[in-house]
Design a protein around this nucleic acid. Structure first.
Lengths: 185, 185
DNA sequence: ACTAACATGTAAGCGGTTACATGATTTC
DNA sequence: GAAATCATGTAACCGCTTACATGTTAGT
């Protein structure tokens, strides 16, 4: 499990509330890890109880008060230990691949629309990533000298971009295969 | 959830026992979906209770008897319905990406070995996929005329190959980034 | 008036992992 | 004699999803 670790990394990059973390998990951190706000609040409470993170009540005007979390010394230790222990390459789960193989026993042509839908979703994500890259790393407003943190964030983002490009190309391949199928007789 | 559907597809491709399914989930089906034998046995029992699949006790010599499952009419209906309903593009979870971003707050150089380990794992998988492709689809012993099922299986396998190649290239990129980091002073 | 954004939670359920358990046969 | 393969399960746990719940402020 790496949700705690993802939260630790995100809080090290910038302290914030559960709500803010949930928003980050829809954006940058969410490129490679997802979590709902319910899950985040629960884990934050446990992490606080275990002394991994500190809380600070922040009164706000015009908005509900929030709890700002930051990484405690113990949290840094936990993260460091995790970084130094090997993890297994994660197992993949592609619903769409199951569908594609299943299509052989149904109507393959009916799957074309679904594949195109997925392709649009991946194209949207790619556009989103590329905009982020331009804004934060390669654009005119990006910081000229980048520290290790930014270099590594950029490397992860390049991974997301490579993934989406790969998916788009593969889904093209799948569509060509679906179109090329001739009904048996 | 798609484990039931993955099992239906696999049983349509070829009926088999829970044990055999578990083995397939380590090979071909496992390219895009994983499941342990415990999970498979439990789901098979439920699917049988719901009338999605049929069982046949097969006595064997020199081996324990096995239960051979095959897809029932209801199972085909369930699969067909699922194939026709849209699913959301799955959310990604990459532990390694969390580690890479986390490395900025620890020792980035210490991560090099871990990244290389993952790269070897992906290289192994790629080799495995390519061997499977040669054996089943593009080699001299592969069937010349391929039906829809084989065409689609091949398309999924090409996806696995594209994924592993993408990962290898990206991990090269990550390694170059890690090596390029100069300690601040 | 309504919607969106801000902010934090509880409760039920379930899919999946990990550990434990058994027993035969084949191969080294 | 030990290990690997074949074959099927139970039990405990837990991470995560889905649904439900509440309340404020800002903008249209």
């Amino acid at each position: 499990m790496a949700l705690e670790h993802a939260i630790l990394v995100s809080l090290l990059e910038k302290p914030g509330s559960g709500y803010e973390l949930a928003r980050r998990f829809e954006r940058s951190i969410g490129y490679f890890w997802t979590a709902t706000h319910q899950q985040i609040y629960r884990v934050l409470k446990r992490m606080e109880g275990d002394g991994w993170i500190d809380v600070r009540e922040v009164p706000q005007q015009g908005r509900p008060d929030k709890k700002e979390y930051s990484v405690a010394a113990l949290g840094r230790t936990v993260l460091s230990r995790w970084l130094h222990e090997p993890i297994e390459p994660e197992s993949v789960r592609h619903d769409l691949a199951v569908k594609i193989r299943g299509a052989a026993f149904d109507d393959p042509v009916a799957l074309i629309g679904e594949v195109e839908r997925h392709q649009r979703a991946h194209a949207d994500r790619l556009t989103h990533y590329l905009a982020g890259q331009l804004r934060d790393f390669t654009g005119p407003d990006a910081p000229t000298a980048q520290d290790a943190g930014q270099e590594l964030q950029h490397a992860v983002l390049r991974g997301g971009i490579a993934y989406e490009r790969m998916m788009l190309a593969w889904l093209d391949d799948v569509l060509a295969t679906l179109h090329g199928l001739r009904p048996e007789h």
